[in-house]
Design a protein around this nucleic acid. Structure first.
Lengths: 229, 229
DNA sequence: TCTTGCATACTACCATACAAGTCAAGAGGG
DNA sequence: CCCTCTTGACTTGTATGGTAGTATGCAAGA
C-alpha cells in the first residue's frame, strides 16, 4: 500500500491534493478490511509510511472520523473504528428509506433510456456471477448509483455512499454469506417493476433487497467478535 | 461573536477543542445567515478574529466543507456555499424518506412514555405560537429528535441533522413564510396517528409536513437570488 | 502482595514557517 | 487605446516545532 509519488507535472494534471489521496487510500483500506477494526494508526506512522508530513494525514483523519470510520481519541491515539452494530443497522435503515423513495419515483416516471441502461447493466451483472466479489460490488454500486442519478437525486447519492461504507466493511469481512445470483435476480425484478410502472412492487423489491444484510450480520459478528464494539 | 477564553481549569472541565468551538460557532453563523451565502472568509481572517492560529480554523473549515456549508477553492479562497436548490431539495427528499420510515416504526410500536413525552412537547409548542421563530425552531428540532430517538435510530438522527442544516439556512432567510400554528397542528396530528397505531396516517402526515418548504423555496429564491447558485 | 509516585515515551493539538497557485493592478511596448 | 507581461499581494497547501495530556513500566513503600 503505497501512495503514488507525484511529480509537479502529474499534480498539475490531476489536481489531487495529498489529503485527498490519503483519504481515498485509507478509506479503501478500512472498508476492504486491510486495516482491521480496533487497530491503532498514528498520524506520525502513516505520515512516515507515505513520505508526507503529519498535517495532511491529520486532515484526512478528520474526514474519516466524520464518516465514522476512524475514532480519534485526543492524546491517546487514533483507531480504526470498531464496527458498531447499531451504526450499521441504522445506515441500512436510512439507505432502505431513501432508495425506496427513489425507486418509487422511477416507477412513476421511467425514462426509456434509463430502463435500457439498467437492463444493460443486468446483463453484465449476470456475467459476473461466479466471479470475484469485488467485481460484483463495483457493478452493484454502479447499479444503485444509476437508480439515484436516474431519479435526479445526485445529492442523495452522497448520503447513500456514506451509509454504504458502513455496510460494505461488514460485507468484506465475509464474502461468502451472500449469493450474487440472488442479488442479481432482485435487481432484475426491480428493473421490471420500474419498467412496468409498478411503484408498489419496486418499493417492496428494493426493501427486501436491502434487508439481506440483516441475515448475514449476526453470523459475521459471531465469526469476528473482536471487530465489533 | 467572540470565542470564550479558556483557562486551564475550564479546559479540564469542558474538554472542548478549539476546532470544535470554531466549528460550532461558524456552523451556527452560516445557518443563521450571519455569514451570507457567497461571502468570502479566509482562514487567516477568522484565525485573527478568534485569536487562534490558522490550523484549527482550517480543520473546522474542512468539516464545514464536508457538510456542504463552505466551499474551499484551493489557492483562491474559502466561501460560504451559495444555496443550491437541488441540494436543498435532495436534503428534503432524504429527510422525508427517513422520517417517514421512522414514524411508521413508531406507529407500529408506540411506547406510552414516548407518547406522553411528545404530547408534553406539543403543549409547549402551542405556547410558542406567536413567539420568536428561533424558539420554535429549537422546539421543532427537539420534537423531531424525540421521534428518531424513540424509534431507536440515534445514528439516523445524525443524517437528519445534516439534511436539516441545508433546509434551515433557507428558512432563516425568511421567517415569514411559514405558519407556526399550522406546523404545530401537523405535529399534533402526527402524534395522534402514532398513538392510534395508524402507520399510514402517520406517514402521510409527516410527508405533508416536510413538503411544506417546497412552497416557500421558490418565493425565497425570488427574494434573495444573490444567495442562490 | 498491593499500592503509590515518578520517569519516560508515546499521543494528538496547536502555532509557526515556508511553498505554491491565483488574480488583479500596472508598466511598457505596439 | 489596446494588448502583453510582470510583479506582488493575496489565497490555501504542506512541513515542522513545541506543548500538554495519557499510558506504561518500575521502584519504593505499606
Amino acid at each position: 500500500m503505497q501512495l503514488a509519488r507525484l511529480d509537479a507535472a502529474t499534480l498539475q494534471t490531476m489536481r489531487v491534493s495529498v489529503v485527498d489521496q490519503l483519504y481515498s487510500a485509507l478509506r479503501a483500506a478500512i472498508i476492504d478490511n486491510d486495516l482491521s477494526p480496533g487497530s491503532r494508526i498514528s498520524e506520525a506512522e502513516i505520515a512516515q509510511h507515505y513520505g508526507v508530513s503529519r498535517q495532511p494525514v491529520r486532515e484526512a483523519f478528520i474526514k474519516l472520523a466524520n464518516e465514522g470510520l476512524l475514532e480519534v481519541r485526543p492524546q491517546r491515539g487514533t483507531f480504526v473504528a470498531k464496527i458498531s452494530l447499531s451504526a450499521v443497522m441504522d445506515a441500512r435503515f436510512v439507505r432502505e428509506a431513501v432508495e425506496a423513495d427513489i425507486v418509487k419515483l422511477l416507477a412513476q416516471d421511467a425514462a426509456p433510456a434509463l430502463i435500457a441502461d439498467l437492463r444493460g447493466q443486468l446483463t453484465r451483472q449476470r456475467g459476473i456471477i461466479g466471479g470475484s466479489a469485488r467485481d460484483f460490488m463495483e457493478a452493484d454500486e454502479a447499479f444503485h448509483h444509476t437508480l439515484a442519478a436516474g431519479a435526479g437525486k445526485a445529492n442523495a447519492w452522497r448520503v447513500i455512499v456514506e451509509m454504504k461504507a458502513q455496510m460494505d466493511r461488514v460485507r468484506f469481512l465475509s464474502s461468502m454469506h451472500f449469493s450474487v445470483a440472488r442479488l442479481v435476480d432482485q435487481h432484475t425484478e426491480l428493473v421490471e417493476a420500474i419498467a412496468a410502472g409498478d411503484a408498489g412492487r419496486a418499493e417492496q423489491t428494493i426493501r427486501a433487497h436491502l434487508k439481506g444484510i440483516l441475515q448475514d450480520l449476526p453470523v459475521i459478528e459471531q465469526e469476528h467478535p473482536e471487530f465489533f464494539r
